[in-house]
């Protein structure tokens, strides 16, 4: 087994546990960063170079920064668990461990051998005779660009429209409109003046 895979898998699992188990949400966010960087390293091991770097730029470098911004603006207190919550926690975690213990042998039985021809047989159902001669494509920027802008062009444009919709939505949701009274309310979910937090 590959030593690098063991190291990165350990980083991924430990930091995923850190996201779930750490009390302080800022610590959870940093554990998430560590998790994403570990996953990016595994992408690099799987020959997905472009995705590894984009994972760090987009996920670890933008999304979690946004989460950190929100965490810092909402100065929240870290509370200890109550007793019924602790029971709930342990029950759910035991069920999760049981689920993992059940599914991992099944995965190993079906996908254990690293054989592209065998995987292709399962995936496409075609004859395995000519499938082993499939050229392996590396995930370089050039290769992904070729596929992205020819076969998946419509999806690419639709994704850009999605991002623009999300941008407009985020701006609208956090927009504050000052009404005639001179105090500012937000045009978000609540418009009841008695319960709106003024700032």
């Amino acid at each position: 087994m590959n030593l690098l895979f063991i190291i990165f898998a350990a980083i991924v699992v430990v930091s995923a546990l850190g996201v779930v188990l750490l009390r302080n949400p800022v610590h959870s966010a940093l554990a998430l960063v560590s998790n994403l960087v570990g996953v990016a390293a595994i992408y690099a091991m799987l020959n997905a170079h472009f995705l590894a770097v984009v994972q760090i730029i987009v996920y670890a470098g933008a999304i979690v920064v946004l989460v950190l911004f929100v965490l810092m603006l909402l100065n929240m207190k870290v509370e200890a668990l109550k007793r019924h919550e602790k029971i709930f926690y342990t029950t759910v975690m035991l069920v999760a461990v049981a689920f993992c213990a059940a599914i991992l042998p099944i995965l190993h039985q079906f996908f254990g051998e690293f054989n592209p021809a065998a995987s292709l047989t399962i995936a496409s159902g075609a004859a395995a005779s000519g499938a082993a001669a499939l050229p392996r494509v590396e995930g370089t920027v050039e290769a992904i660009g070729k596929v992205l802008f020819t076969r998946y062009l419509f999806l690419f444009e639709a994704a850009s429209i999605l991002i623009m919709a999300a941008l407009v939505g985020a701006v609208m949701l956090s927009h504050r409109v000052s009404n005639a009274n001179g105090s500012s309310v937000n045009s978000g979910p609540s418009t009841d003046p008695s319960t709106t937090v003024r700032s």
């Binding site: 472009f50 770097v53 984009v54 760090i56 730029i57 670890a60 470098g61 933008a62 920064v65 920027v141």
Partner: peptide
């Protein structure tokens, strides 16, 4: 792109 990634970090 790696330089961009490190700038983000």
């Amino acid at each position: 792109l790696f330089i961009l990634a490190m700038g983000s970090m």
